[in-house]
Each structure stands twice: as C-alpha cells, then as structure tokens.
Design a protein around this nucleic acid. Structure first.
Lengths: 321, 321
DNA sequence: CGAATGCATGCCGTCGCGTTATGATTCCGG
DNA sequence: CCGGAATCATAACGCGACGGCATGCATTCG
C-alpha cells in the first residue's frame, strides 16, 4: 500500500535531474543559505520576494524535491536544500571563473592571435604590427609564422592560425579571392606597388617610370615561385617572355645580383623596404603602375574575437598612418 | 577614432557577465567542444539544430562575446568559446554531483532523520521504528535523542531534530497542539491507554476496569513531572487529590515500588511494555478508558523530505501493524 | 491586541526559447 | 561541371517560464 508520504517520483533518473537543474534555483538556494531568509535572498539577487518564492515552488514541483520548509514565519533549508546550497557554491564559483576569463579576453587584457604572413612582410609590416599590439594590449599574446599565401590560408582553415596576410596579383591562379579561401573571410588590404630594380646607370633608369617591354631583352632575376608567376603574367601582357637568369627567394640576394649587373628584377615595395637600400641599384615603378594586392584572411566572423578584431584595427591604423 | 572592430561593450563588469551566463549556453558550448558541430551538439542535447543556433546567437548578442566562427560549412569555437568550454566541464560536473546527491536523497539511498521522543518511547516505539527504517532504507542515517515533549518541540523548532514524538493529556497546559508548537506541523498519532498499576491481590484488581476514585485513599507513586500532571488532572476530574508518596521517572522503579506495596501508580501503556512485566503487579485500565495522546511534530512541509516522509510512513505502519 | 515581518497566492504582461519550414553555402561524387 | 547531401542561418509562431504588483495569511513583537 503506497504511503501518502512518498514523493511519487523517487526513481527519476539522475540525468533527468541534472538536466532540469536550473541556475536560478542554484543561485536562489545559495543566497537563502547565506542570508537565511527568502526576502533577503530576493533583495540580494535584485528580485522581488514573490519571484524567488515562485522560483522555488516551480523547482519543487518540477523535481519533487523540497528545498525549504516553513518554520514560524520564516523558512529554513531542508536537507536537500543544504546539499544543493553546498554544491551551489562550487557551481557559481566555476561560473565566475569563466566569466572572469571571458571578461579578460573581451577587455583585451588576455587573449592571443596567431599570425601568418608571407616572407617579405616579416621584416616590415609584421614587426610594426606586433609592436603596435604589444604596446597597446600587453596582455594579448601574438605568435607569428611565415608562410606563402596558399599555405597561410590553409593554416587559417585548419585552425593553426587566426589571421593570414596574403597577396595576389591580377590573373593569379591561386588568388585567395577564389576557391582556395572558400568559407573564409577575405579583406582587401590595399595594393603594394611593384618596383623594377635596375643597376645604377642602366639606360632605362633615366625615366621616372618604365614601360615593361623596354626590359624585354634583359636577363631577369626571379623571386619566389609566385613572384615569378607575377613577372611572367606582367611580361606576357607586355608582349614578351622574360629570360630568367637566376632564381632566389632571398630579396637581399636579388638586390645584390642586380647591383652586380647580372640582370634586372621586379620586386614588391615591401621587399625593398625590408632592408636598407642596397648600394648600386635604382628602383622605378612600372609605367602601368602594376601592383600586387594584399589580403587579410580570417575565419568568418573572427573579427568579433577581440584579439583578432584589435589586430585588424591595428593593421588599418598602420595602413592609414 | 573608434575602429569598426571593437565590440562596443568591452568594459562591462565581470559580475554582470557572471549574472548573464546561462546554463543552456554552457551546456551547448560543452557539447560543441565535444562533438565539433552544432548539429551534433543539438542532437546530443535533444534539441533541434536551430534551437542551439539561436541559443548561441542570443548569448553573443547579450554579452558581445563571440563563441563560434564559421569555417567552411561548419563552425569552430573561438578562443572565448574554448575558454567557456573548459569551464563548462567544471560547471556541469558540479551540477551533476549535486543532482546525484539529490537523487540519492530523493531515492532514500541517502539522507538522515533526527528523531527526538519522550523516554518511555525509547524502549518500545523508537527501537521498532529505527529497525524498520534501517532494514528498508539502509542508506538513511537515523539519530535519536530522548527529550520530554516541550524540549522535543523546541528541538524541532531550533533545527536540532527533524521529528519529535510527543504526548499530551487532556487539559495539558503544555499541549503541543497549543502555542508551543506554533509554526510547526503536528500530527495526531493515536492514543495510548493509561493503566493503573496495583500490587497483586489488591482488592480493586478484582474488577476488569477500575473507577479512579476507588483509589482515592491510596498512596501514589508519580512519574515524571508531566505524568504527575496527568495524574492530578484525572484525579481532579474524579473528585480527589492523590497523595504522592514517591516520585521517580524510572518506570521500572515504579513497578518495583508497587510490587512492594508502597502505593499504586498510573502508567502509560508504552512504559509498561518497555520491560518484561514486573512480578507482583497487575494492571487495569481506568473505567473512563483514559488515554494520553501521541503526536508527531515536524517543521511544516517536512513530510516532503524523503527521509522524514519515510519515517512518518514507517510510524503509520507500526501503528497499523 | 495592533503593527510589523515574512512568505504565499492570484493576476497579468513580456519575452525567452523551443518548434517547423525554408534559405544560403559549402563540400563531395559522378 | 553539376546535382545532392550536409551544415548553419533565418523566419514565423506558439507556449510557458518568469518577472512585477497587489493582496492575503500566519507569526512575532512591542
């Protein structure tokens, strides 16, 4: 014969109980344990007294677990109530720890951003960026690795980096705007002028700008594979196929070779800025003012990550300054 | 100049953030961290996919904290998301621990009940009660202390006991039904017959029941103060004032004195049951079938505490059996 | 014995939070 | 290169949880 004293749901599962435990009840019970009365708990939580009263009633009806019992004109926690209050401390403490860390990240007092950029940015753009971030947000950790555009984009996709600085040139078959960056955010970050590099005294250097086809017969010193692709693209448009005499991805070496009269080269402006101007060379823009485009690649929505947003903002400031 | 990349709420307080952290988001993020996709997290939580999608959006709008970023056709957690996921484990673990303990109590596999009862119940009612509880609910801890009714009620009020077994007699000025138990629950637990105790061979023992006034001239052996009060009350109703020859709260001693012919006594049935019948005495009910009433006193609503409810049910079963 | 205290109750408006249906991308296989 | 599957976002909608306020009831205190 069932007693009138059984709860009627004594065998409900622990999982279901955990799923129906709500934070409000946990907070309420914690405050009741600390203040001893329902009214004081309500005031402490910024609620009206009936609110917490109903909160408890809903919980008790839902779970069949009595948390408080009336005594006189007040209440006190039952055994279950005290048990929950004890755990409530652990729960709210863990939540506050989480909130603290999130606030640190949101306030840019913590966080990290993993940069990846092409090599010629390593000596110019990236150091300035890192210095700017470090002085403004000392709590944000910045890491940096070098990688050519295709690998850089892949690093973002595979979550090995947060922000990739890439470049592309018109006609580039690996243009980050195209398929390789599908599902990512790509921001244009301005254009970088291409500079022709000639030995001092080269006849073509007499004019301020140079038609590319004037150098059709020169031996060329090519850079990295993609830079070489850009050269071939531009030369093709100008109606000739350049004769590649040397190849190296070391820009300083390129300048040295040009100074030695071994050939001419086409270098992006950043590469030339990376080191003090090598003696014995001159640089001229192309007549068509050719450029390569810079891009910032992130996961979609990543600008809302404070550290990444701050990095994007710093990059904008660098471009403007 | 504010950048377009700032969140717009970077200085909101940690307290506010902790207050707006909700359990659903914590659970969702935990599942996303474990399953890697929003759809799988939804399935794991038993929700539809849009539900968790909106849950995340609401959180991000409320707090300005991005938890996920899109990549390809999927998502991944941001830095903040991973931080929250890490803490989410602590939070849900603490909640599950709480749920587990509550379920144990609800399922009567744990819990405690603190009993307090009057002395003559110690040897009869209480042992049977404890034995019954111990065999049916081995996980429930039972403690017991002896106290006379006024102190027993006070123990419940002061949270030194959960359940008091008390008695009262008609006209009792300390009747638990009255002011002393204000704000508590009082349940009637039947009546206990009062028995007159006479030495063997006493002339009044020849009849099956005894009119109290037949013993008006006898010396009386009184029990505890309240028992003495009951005797005075009944004798007063019968028209005489008993002459108290001895007083002791030791019921066995009372029986011994009666057996020695030192007087007669009025004892409750439970006191007589507590020990084997003392030789040389006989017991008879009073002609008016006088009784004292038993009561069970708890905090209001305490019957919903599983261990206390089970104790009440066990007491009912004992009374019925 | 009236005033004050503490909790419960009833009523009600709002909005959080689910659902289903549908759209927009992305990825994959033929 | 082109459907189809997979994944998340969006829209529309309904319900119930959850607040507040006003009020009632029991207890306690002066």
């Amino acid at each position: 014969m069932p007693s009138r004293y059984d709860s009627g749901m004594s065998d409900a599962s622990v999982e279901h109980l955990a799923a129906t435990l709500d934070l409000q009840t946990v907070r309420v019970v914690r405050q009741i344990a600390e203040h001893g009365s329902l009214t004081a708990a309500a005031a402490s939580l910024g609620y009206s007294q009936p609110a917490v009263s109903q909160q408890l009633q809903r919980f008790e009806e839902r779970t069949g677990i009595a948390l408080v019992e009336r005594v006189g004109r007040g209440i006190r926690l039952t055994e279950s109530g005290r048990v929950l209050a004890r755990h409530a401390f652990a729960v709210t403490t863990a939540l506050e720890a989480a909130a603290g860390e999130l606030a640190e990240i949101r306030g840019l007092r913590a966080g990290r951003v993993r940069l990846v950029a092409f090599p010629s940015a390593s000596a110019t753009l990236v150091p300035r960026l890192i210095a700017s971030l470090a002085s403004e947000y000392p709590g944000v950790a910045v890491t940096y690795v070098e990688a050519e555009p295709p690998e850089a984009v892949e690093a973002v996709r595979a979550d090995r980096a947060d922000l990739a600085i890439t470049f592309s040139y018109p006609g580039d078959r690996d243009d980050p705007h195209r398929a390789s960056a599908r599902g990512l955010d790509v921001r244009a970050y301005g254009d970088e002028p291409m500079q022709l590099v000639l030995p001092e005294g080269h006849p073509a250097a007499e004019s301020d700008v140079i038609m590319l086809d004037r150098l059709a017969g020169e031996p060329w010193i090519a850079g990295c594979p993609r830079c070489r692709g850009h050269l071939l693209e531009l030369a093709g448009a100008a109606g000739f196929t350049p004769r590649i005499a040397f190849e190296t991805d070391n820009f300083v070496a390129v300048e040295g070779m040009v100074a030695q009269g071994l050939g001419v080269a086409l270098l992006p402006a950043l590469a030339l800025e990376a080191s003090p101007r090598h003696p014995g060379i001159v640089t001229r823009p192309t007549a068509r003012a050719d450029v390569r485009s810079l891009h910032l690649v992130t996961a979609r929505g990543a600008e809302r990550v404070p550290a990444i947003g701050a990095t994007l903002a710093a990059l904008e400031a660098l471009a403007a300054g």
